[in-house]
Design a protein around this nucleic acid. Structure first.
Lengths: 235, 235
DNA sequence: TAAGGTTTGCGACTATGGGGCGAAAACCAT
DNA sequence: ATGGTTTTCGCCCCATAGTCGCAAACCTTA
């Protein structure tokens, strides 16, 4: 049980901010200088202030670490309420998933750094499981939404996008298949330009972009569909 | 802005409890006797008490309306934080989705009743949109999980199950397709028994049951799968 | 300019799973 | 037995994903 159990819980917001850096999925963490969990790493976030919404709160706390304008996506995850999740007080935590495009490299305070999600340091509180939940949410949504836009730069070749997906999903991805799936779903479109070929030569790749930066869900996963002759293709 | 904005918000839990009754999807509501929103209908729920988790809180509040043991499923939805969502105070609300099998008919207090989700009365606060969110979550999960177990009685024919799905999804469902999909995914199994044929005659249907009442997710919706020869069938 | 190496693009083929349809099976009532 | 009703099941079609391999496009070096 908590050392202090008042009648009202405190409320914090926490964010799992993910980015693909150097070919691997990394999460934004900061190292605690004070107890509890002194020396351990923790998710960015902090207390909810009066008059704020939860989203405003997490954006404000993140602004102290990274420039908030660099966040390409932010969505709410679970709200945690185990009375023992903080050793010092009765504290609720509403968690968020944030994404940053891979071509950005925001300035960070000295106590803050990116850590690979597959090789995490010791995390304080229940933050380890929160990172797992964020990673899982990202993995799932990459499959049935256009969320890739939030990980990718404005323009990219299919090979570059394949590497992004491979890092985020944690397994190899076929470039052929990725291109076909995303083009058929109309989430990618061609820019017409090509990229200068790399240092090792080879054919230069066409540049693509995501058609929109609004989250869209593929309707294809409604398994028991309404009856009808056929779903009309876009007119 | 709220009339009263203290430094600490209050926190309530609310539940969208759904059941298929008389062939349509209905939600559990109670009619408010006091301001604000006197006379309007509202979702069951109430304040979070000291030492509780959010799930314990909503279960306790629901116990005052329906016997909690009748809930076949309970999962967290969003946590709402608009400072103006309650006219009387700064109040956060963590919402839940609850499901009740269609063969149960719990005792209800006098102020409480089931209402069809397609023809709702006037709802107080933001409860209208919460009901929508719950309905949408149910619809989605019926497609890619075995969540149907939470709507169905212990045994049923395919036709009966089709009617349940049709009511929950809001559109017709093919019995042939439903059976094939759920059997292939191994979520349904046959009991061996048959149901006596109905009043209008006809061939008696075989009785089925859900293989498990634990929530399981069909892995089939990972679109960009890991490479490999084939996913091995269950050995 | 030709040859060889590297990377991208793309079509062909296969596998899987959902949707539609109709015939056969199983039951009741007359 | 005959007809009406409901369930069951096989068959075919189509959409989409996964795999493979070759051609195209580019660079470097000879």
């Amino acid at each position: 049980m908590s050392e202090v159990t008042s009648a009202h819980p405190t409320h914090v917001t926490l964010a799992v901010v993910l980015q693909v850096r150097r070919g691997e999925l990394q999460v934004l963490l900061w190292q605690r200088a004070r107890e509890p969990f002194r020396g351990a790493w923790a998710l960015p976030g902090g207390y909810l202030s009066a008059g704020e919404t939860l989203e405003q709160s997490i954006r404000a706390h993140l602004a102290a670490k990274v420039d908030v304008r660099e966040l390409s996506h932010l969505e709410q995850l679970e709200t945690l309420s185990d009375p023992d999740r903080s050793p010092k007080e009765w504290q609720l935590a509403t968690t968020y998933l944030g994404l940053v495009p891979s071509d950005l490299d925001p300035e960070l305070p000295g106590d803050t750094d990116w850590q690979p999600v597959d090789d995490l340091p010791r995390l304080g509180f229940d933050h380890g499981s929160i990172v797992l939940a964020g990673r899982e949410r990202l993995r799932a949504k990459l499959s049935y939404t256009n969320l890739g836009f939030a990980l990718a730069p404005a323009e990219f070749t299919i090979s570059e996008l394949r590497d992004l997906y491979a890092a985020a999903l944690g397994h190899d991805v076929s470039a052929t298949n990725l291109q076909r799936v995303l083009l058929r779903r109309d989430v990618l479109e061609q820019t017409g330009r090509r990229r200068a070929s790399g240092p090792s030569g080879g054919r230069p790749g066409s540049l693509f972009r995501f058609r929109t930066s609004e989250l869209e869900i593929t309707d294809q996963f409604a398994v028991l569909r309404p009856p009808g002759p056929a779903r009309v293709p876009v007119a």
